[in-house]
């Protein structure tokens, strides 16, 4: 499952299956804990990673078993950088409804991107929205 290169020591290609997310989530969070991240940055990474992986599998690949999700992560004492790429149709961030708007408050979904953007220091969508790169600095560094 994992192959290493210099830029991103952690690399995973997983099927579009929610159960496959746990191992990736755990491996990355284990690295975050190993580097003694502060409570706030650790909380932020855990949440954004959960949301990003779920978005890729559920909304990107739409649970299509023929599609995969590729995840790369680099965790240092200074910061964590995570890239998640799916094989879906992509999306335009500008066209995603604001979940905080009055008319959307009662809707049960649509808050994942908002939380990722609120908690990470930097978020970048590329490849037509199929690829998201997130960076969070270690607040204990």
């Amino acid at each position: 499952m994992a192959a290493a290169n210099g830029k991103f020591p952690l690399q995973f290609t997983i099927p579009s299956d929610k159960s496959a997310l746990h191992e990736v989530h755990k491996r990355i969070m284990d690295e975050v804990e190993r580097h003694h991240y502060g409570e706030q940055s650790s909380f932020a990474i855990r949440l954004a990673l959960e949301e990003g992986l779920m978005n890729a599998v559920k909304h990107g690949n739409k649970l299509d078993p023929t599609k995969t999700v590729h995840v790369e992560a680099k965790v240092t004492a200074k910061q964590t950088e995570i890239v998640i790429e799916d094989q879906g149709a992509g999306f335009d961030r500008k066209h995603v409804p604001d979940p905080c708007a009055e008319e959307n408050l009662l809707k049960c979904s649509g808050r994942g991107l908002l939380l990722m953007e609120a908690y990470m220091d930097k978020i970048q969508y590329t490849h037509g929205g199929r690829r998201v790169k997130m960076i969070k600095k270690n607040d204990a560094a």
Partner: peptide, 8 residues
């Protein structure tokens, strides 16, 4: 910890 799915 809780996710957006939990909020939903």
């Amino acid at each position: 910890h809780l996710s957006s799915a939990a909020l939903g």
